[in-house]
Each structure stands twice: as C-alpha cells, then as structure tokens.
C-alpha cells in the first residue's frame, strides 16, 4: 500500500528544510518559488532526491506545473501508483 498524500507532504517538508533559509512554516500550500525561493536548478536537484527516496521516476517535463508542496506530493503519489 502506497503512502497517503499527507504522509508524502510531511516527508517532502522534511526534505525541503535544507532550502528553508528563513525558517517559514512548511505546509501543502507553501509555494516553492515565491515563498521558499528555490531556483529552477534547485528544483531539479530536489526532484532527483525525491526520485531516490521514493524509488520512482519523475520526468522533468512534469515539473514545470509544480508550484506548491501539495502539487509535488500529488505528483509523487501518481508516480508511485504507476510504478
């Protein structure tokens, strides 16, 4: 049984702490660009980490639609189902 979306959000928030320079509260609603200030290359590096952690592929073509942590969690769950 794959993880629930809430569990994935919690894991992603943990992984994102390294980018959280201002120590804001991270939730499913947090915007990666405007709130966490993650640049395009950092997002792609983060994707590689997520791929390894959840043992899935996330083609970078799918990443441009991602704005908030919740969007990313939804994508992770989709990729786990399709595994």
């Amino acid at each position: 049984m794959d993880k629930s979306i809430d569990a994935v959000v919690a894991e992603l928030c943990g992984m994102l702490q390294q980018y959280n320079k201002e120590g804001i509260e991270l939730t499913a609603e947090t915007d990666l660009g405007s709130e966490l200030n993650i640049d395009s290359v950092e997002v792609m590096d983060l994707i590689m980490e997520i791929e390894d952690k959840f043992d899935i592929d996330i083609p970078i073509n799918l990443v441009s639609d991602i704005e908030r942590i919740g969007d990313l969690a939804k994508l992770v769950c989709q990729r786990m189902e399709g595994r």
């Binding site: 792609m44 590689m48 791929e51």
Partner: peptide, 26 residues
C-alpha cells in the same frame, strides 16, 4: 530535449551508477 517532446530523466553529474539505476527503474 524539451523541443523533442521526449520524456526527460536527469541523472547525477558524471555518475554512471546513477544512470544505470535510472535506466533499470524505467
């Protein structure tokens, strides 16, 4: 790569093992 419309998988820089893992996963 983007213009090609292909699925794009990025592997860790200069890391053949990482590439192997991603190819195996697919």
């Amino acid at each position: 790569c983007r213009l090609s419309g292909a699925t794009l998988v990025r592997f860790r820089h200069n890391d053949p093992k990482d590439l192997d893992k991603r190819l195996t996963r697919l």
